[in-house]
Nucleic acid binder design. Structure first.
Lengths: 156, 156
DNA sequence: TATTTTGCAACATCGAAAGTTACGTGATAG
DNA sequence: CTATCACGTAACTTTCGATGTTGCAAAATA
């Protein structure tokens, strides 16, 4: 299962709530993975202009675009237009006419589903996911729903 | 890439146009694969009641349902409710609230796309794919579009 | 200059589909 | 009744992409 989109969204939201840059090491700890994997995956977001990386002391990853201006689709695309479906034709270039007919039907259905998925990913900004997190945080049993809480400890 | 749905559709259509049963050996040749793989995959269709298998001389696989009564979705389901997306959340049971918010958005989009795909798969009977093949066959340059053709050689 | 942090290459690991081998079972031909 | 055909299934290997890991170079800062 390709979890890169999920992971990058997670990191972007964290980065949106941090003062300084986030090191690959810290990010890897958050995700329960490896710093090299973080760099590898984040490099796509850097090339797409959503984050930047700085070397050396005090370095790490920082946002250079507002989370309002980044959609889930943007992140997906920045990761390299990866395969969406685990399902597909045996041979997309088949010469057998039966197989071509099968491919036409199957690919048609997949195309429609993919188009819908991409529309939905495009509908959701990373900022709106962050807002959803705020909602969940405010309603979390650790805090209670009262407005008596000035203290907000990190929840993850 | 999981090509089982594609392959089983291919075989079902062939079986619908054959007089006798289709051996796993012949099916494997059609698909460019192995008889054991054919048996393994077809066993799901047998258990679902779409085909039957007969051992021994003159045995093989035969349809026991009209292709009109089998949809692409039926075949997909008979293969065991396999994974549809190559994409998904890093941890569907995350306790981190940020990750939960990410999962909610991502899973929502995936759910919608999956629902559409299943609807589309359900819209298409295997018989209609076979009919599409007939159309392609009639219009294939090997035959020409004239009605002068009584002869129909196998096209694959 | 020592330390921190990214960049990147070159592996190893993992999981699911697919391929392969081997042997058992049942059915039919002769 | 025996040889052969064809499926049933277990067990193993292969393949492919994502992921994990190690090692080292390069850059930036204290």
């Amino acid at each position: 299962m390709d979890a890169r989109l999920s992971r990058m969204l997670h990191l972007l939201i964290h980065m949106g709530r941090m003062a300084g840059p986030l090191t690959s090491e810290a990010a890897a700890t958050m995700l329960g993975t490896n710093p090299v994997v973080v760099r590898r995956t984040m490099s796509g977001l850097r090339d797409a202009g959503y984050v930047r990386s700085v070397k050396g002391h005090g370095g790490g990853w920082s946002l250079i675009r507002d989370l309002d201006d980044i959609t889930m689709l943007d992140v997906h695309r920045a990761l390299g237009e990866n395969r969406i479906f685990a399902l597909g034709p045996a041979d997309p270039t088949a010469t057998c006419l039966v197989e071509q007919a099968v491919n036409a039907s199957l690919e048609g259905a997949l195309r429609e589903a993919e188009a819908l998925l991409l529309r939905r990913l495009n509908d959701v900004s990373v900022a709106s996911i962050a807002a959803d997190f705020d909602h969940r945080f405010a309603e979390s049993p650790d805090i209670g729903e009262t407005e008596a809480s000035g203290r907000r400890t990190s929840s993850d």
